[in-house]
Design a protein around this nucleic acid. Sequence first.
DNA 1: GTTAGTGCAAACCATTTGCAGAACG
DNA 2: CGTTCTGCAAATGGTTTGCACTAAC
Lengths: 144, 144
Amino acid sequence: MTCSLKYAPQLRAQGMRMTAQRVAILHVLEQTGGHLSPTQIYDLARKEYPKLTEPTVYRTLEELAERKFLLAAHVGNGKMVYELAENHNHHHLICRECHAEVQIDHTTLKKLFAELESSTGYRFIDIHVTFFGLCPFCQNQKGD
Amino acid sequence: MTCSLKYAPQLRAQGMRMTAQRVAILHVLEQTGGHLSPTQIYDLARKEYPKLTEPTVYRTLEELAERKFLLAAHVGNGKMVYELAENHNHHHLICRECHAEVQIDHTTLKKLFAELESSTGYRFIDIHVTFFGLCPFCQNQKGD
DNA sequence: GTTAGTGCAAACCATTTGCAGAACG
DNA sequence: CGTTCTGCAAATGGTTTGCACTAAC
């Protein structure tokens, strides 16, 4: 298992300090490997560093996302989730009913992104996309 | 301008009633033609029907979305927006910095959706997608 | 008249803010 | 030591709930 401290030099290079709180937060994100909501991160990281508070979690996540260490994405009803940028080579497809998740490899979208960038002039489209659909199981449930 | 009352028969067919509140809400969505947040809808619809309250707006939007009269999508920091389903043949690309919006025609995504559906087994992917990127103007601002 | 829909008021929950004190480097 | 970061406590703002009343049909 990699140590969260490995990020220290990169953080410092950007004028950020490596604190116990940040270690705990990064650690949680490393261990789970997927995307987590601020509340989930707060609950998990507090086991490692009980003095952690919610405002710190929010401030840290925002800062780390701004500096591209984390990626922010939306799932379901407008909830924000975060994920380590280095883990990110995929997108998500989530079932509207049961919330089952499937990962979509980034190569699948590469061509589309290139198309969109050239036709709109926008760039960095889009680090992370979440699609919604009905998984095979829920399709049957609906007799559809 | 089309009258919101035209929806009455369709609503009734599903056991819903057409009230003044719902007329006002549908009316606002028709007039603006785009996607609006519950708060925006509340503010606008109240001009037409001042007795309207927020809980009613939320309940109505949720109900109409469930019955496929409206589409729900996420923009930016996890905010929910609604749009008339019949207006919907496009997706959105939003600038992360200035929130400028571009519409993406659905045909651009059609092929991708077909691919995803066959490779994952999921279906109804995805009624509405929102992409995020940097618009040409903001790219320059960043000297990037 | 029956059932769906609404208003009101309050609760809820995630997120944000200000500021004084703690801690990194 | 100076500057960044954190904790605390409180405010904020969007969204939801319960219940009695109103209105659609």
